[in-house]
Design a protein around this nucleic acid. Structure first.
Length: 409
DNA sequence: ATGCATGAGAG
DNA sequence: TCTCATGCATA
């Protein structure tokens, strides 16, 4: 294994650097080498507040073997690369400066992110904008932590979680939130789609996008809770809460039925569609209520999901236009592989979710990335077999076909 | 929740 | 042409 990755290292790095030179824009203060993506990864990792990355986290069940295979690699290459990751400067370069001035069609986030919130500080100098935070920021900088609470992935993650919980407590759907944003009357902020709210909550937006959206959603949340508190809303202020109470009541399964289902499940955890229908009929429940026994939710079935096996990858590698999605533990970003993968993420033209919340243990941050055919091709041209192996390894431990690690809760 | 498409802005 | 944010439609 070790050979596998170290062999791949040199070729990839040089190729990667070539790519970096082309693809990657300046990422702020000069860290060592020109691999800003890595900083990002590093940052996130550090900021995850996880136990030392090298320590062997016990991830859940099926992933174990894969992780174990990878462990020695990461620890060994860690040695060489760690210094880089620890580089305290530039922590907040955080990449994306070049993105900050993007103007998107119609979106509420035109250009500078976070309208109405700490004007200007997002524009690529995420230093301490609150005087009060300056000290903390400085301290954080010394400690190698991200000084800016608004751009701190931990904070973003925490906020997203909080947001979701409180939204649900308010009985408001993602779609409701999206629409209500327009009523907030924040400058430059219009409605958003359910998709976007969903993506925010699930941290499947770009980091930049997360940062931009956060203050907006925060504003909504505060307003919504205020309005919920005072039943008598200011008639002038448009409600940011959904109008009618038209929520479908939650299905509840009576104890006897539940026992039946559980008993059945013990015998036949994966009944056919007809069986499910029959059960539903018998228990006088809707079919979708019984759907928890479907293959989708069977952990054993997860590895069956697409991409199913190495053959799929092989095929993909021969098929232009295909995009394959791979999930890797962030830990891998700390290894010799990190450069090329970072660059692939940068170069990929499709949407690249930056975060996800599936890592309950906080030891790893699983990060979905997409590899376009071109990138695969480049990778392959450098280290053909090795790359295939690499993919397979990760496929084994993490591919779900949905782009995310299952919770396995 | 997410694959795919769109259109803006930057280069 | 590329990247990115975003929405639509639908699994």
């Amino acid at each position: 294994m070790g050979d596998l990755f170290s062999g791949l290292n040199d070729g990839l790095i040089s190729r990667a650097e070539a790519l970096a030179a082309v693809d990657i824009k300046h990422q702020g203060t000069g860290g060592p080498g020109g691999l800003p993506q890595l900083k990002h990864d590093m940052m996130y990792h550090h900021s995850m507040g996880a136990p030392p990355p090298v320590s062997r986290p016990h991830h859940q069940m099926g992933h174990m073997d894969g992780l174990e295979m990878l462990d020695p690699i990461s620890s060994s290459s860690m040695t060489t690369l760690t210094p880089m990751s620890e580089t305290p400067t530039h922590m907040h370069s955080y990449g994306m400066n070049h993105v900050m001035n993007h103007h998107h069609h119609g979106g509420p986030l035109s250009g500078h992110s976070a309208p109405g919130h700490h004007p200007g500080h997002h524009g690529g100098h995420p230093g301490a904008h609150h005087p009060a935070m300056a000290a903390a920021a400085a301290a954080a900088a010394v400690a190698g932590l991200h000084p800016d609470a608004d751009t701190d992935p931990r904070e973003l993650e925490a906020f997203a979680e909080r947001f979701k919980q409180r939204r649900i407590k308010l009985g408001v759907t993602q779609a409701d939130v999206g629409k209500a944003l327009a009523n907030l009357k924040l400058p430059g902020v219009g409605a958003l789609s359910q998709s976007t709210i969903c993506r925010f909550e699930s941290l499947t937006l770009s980091h930049n996008n997360m940062i931009a959206l956060k203050p907006i959603l925060q504003a909504w949340l505060e307003e919504a809770e205020a309005q919920a508190k005072n039943k008598r809303r200011d008639p002038d202020a448009p409600s940011v809460l959904p109008a009618g109470e038209k929520k479908r009541k939650r299905t509840s399964i009576a104890a006897p039925e539940k026992r039946s289902l559980e008993a059945y499940f013990a015998v036949q955890p994966r009944p056919s569609g007809e069986k499910i229908a029959a059960i539903a009929e018998k228990l006088d429940l809707k079919k979708n209520v019984i759907s928890f026994t479907k293959e989708d939710n069977n952990p054993d079935a997860l590895l069956m999901a697409s991409p199913r096996n190495s053959h799929d990858f092989d095929r993909i590698c021969l098929e232009p236009e295909k995009t394959i999605k791979v999930i890797m533990p962030l830990k891998i970003c700390l290894t010799s592989i990190s450069y090329p993968l970072s660059i692939i993420m940068q170069s990929d033209s499709s949407n690249i979710p930056t975060y996800n919340r599936n890592d309950k243990l906080k030891y790893y941050n699983y990060r979905p990335i997409s590899l376009t055919f071109m990138m695969v091709k480049i990778m392959n041209s450098v280290i053909q077999e090795t790359f295939i192996n690499f993919i397979i390894i990760h496929q084994r431990i993490s591919a779900t076909g949905h782009g995310f690690i299952p919770d396995n809760r």
